[in-house]
Simulated scan of single mutants.
Amino acid sequence: MSALTHLTRTWPVFAALGAGLVQLAVGAGALGAQAWGNAVGALLIAGGAAALGWAVAALRTGRTPVPGAALAAALVLIAASGALVASGAASAIGVAVLPLLAADVFLLVVAFGATATIRAARRGAAVSGAGERGADAAGDREADASSSRGIRRSALSVTGMLAGAALVAALATPALAGTRAGDSAVPHGELHLPADQGHAH
């Protein structure tokens, strides 16, 4: 894999975590408005839970699970939310538009990651036979080089994880703040006390 691939290989996982959290918050904010809003909210919550589950499975296995299903689900959710926003129904049923679009950005990253995994698997299957025929002759010469490459790849992976986590946090934090759940949250550093306790001497 290229250096860029090692740097960004964990980004779809972090993006799935961001998408899941934002969709859960947006879906919860749509509940209780009206019947259609409840249906959309339930679908968003289901999609968010699925994204979180997929991300946890990817973290546990160290690979992209069911990339075909992940790609299809991401595209369906992006198309559905796009139609919801374009029709103007999102605002009518209490769906926060900007956080929903932020979740779409995360889902795009998941879709790109799933596509890259599918393409890599196809390329690997196509060249596996040719690679095995020349592996024994070049094995000794490649031992030292592969060790140094492994160290560089590990460093790139750690750097990519830190950068991916920072980018997701930078987008997910304001997106969550823009939902109804975010509006109800207590700001950091503040403590809400009952009126009688706040004025007591």
Rank of each mutant, 00 (worst) to 15 (best):
M1H: 06
S2Q: 04
H6W: 07
L7K: 07
L7M: 11
T8F: 15
R9T: 01
T10K: 05
P12R: 01
V13W: 06
F14H: 14
F14V: 09
F14C: 10
A16Y: 00
L17A: 05
G18Y: 04
G18T: 05
G18E: 02
G20F: 06
L21R: 03
A25T: 06
V26S: 06
A28L: 10
G29F: 02
G29L: 00
A30M: 12
L31P: 05
G32T: 10
Q34R: 09
A35M: 11
G37S: 06
G41E: 04
L43H: 04
L43A: 08
I45K: 11
G47D: 14
G48D: 07
G48R: 04
A49K: 00
A51D: 11
A51V: 03
L52H: 04
G53V: 02
G53Q: 01
W54C: 13
V56D: 08
A57M: 06
A57P: 02
A58W: 01
A58E: 06
A58R: 02
L59W: 12
L59Q: 11
L59H: 06
R60H: 07
R63H: 12
R63Y: 10
R63C: 10
T64L: 07
P65E: 06
P65W: 02
P67M: 05
A70C: 08
L71I: 01
L71Q: 00
L71P: 00
A73P: 07
A74K: 00
L75T: 01
L77P: 05
A79I: 08
G82W: 01
A83Y: 15
L84D: 03
V85A: 00
A86S: 08
A89N: 09
A90Y: 00
S91P: 04
S91Y: 06
G94F: 06
V95F: 07
A96E: 01
A96R: 03
V97M: 04
V97A: 02
P99L: 08
L100V: 05
L101V: 13
D104V: 08
D104N: 13
V105R: 05
V105G: 02
V109Q: 07
V110W: 03
A111S: 01
A111E: 00
T115S: 03
T115Y: 01
A120M: 12
R122V: 07
G124S: 07
G124E: 09
G124D: 08
V127H: 10
S128A: 15
A130H: 07
A130W: 06
E132H: 13
R133P: 07
R133S: 11
A135R: 15
A135I: 10
A135K: 14
D136G: 08
G139K: 14
G139S: 14
D140F: 13
D140G: 10
R141M: 13
E142T: 11
D144M: 07
A145M: 14
S147R: 15
S148N: 11
S148F: 12
R149H: 13
G150L: 03
I151D: 15
R152L: 13
L156Y: 03
T159K: 09
A166Y: 09
A170M: 05
L171A: 13
A172T: 04
P174M: 10
L176G: 08
L176Q: 05
T179Q: 05
R180D: 06
D183G: 06
D183R: 00
S184Y: 12
V186C: 11
L193S: 01
L193I: 01
D196K: 15
D196V: 14
D196C: 13
Q197K: 11
Q197S: 11
G198M: 12
H199M: 13
A200G: 13
A200H: 15
H201S: 13
H201E: 14
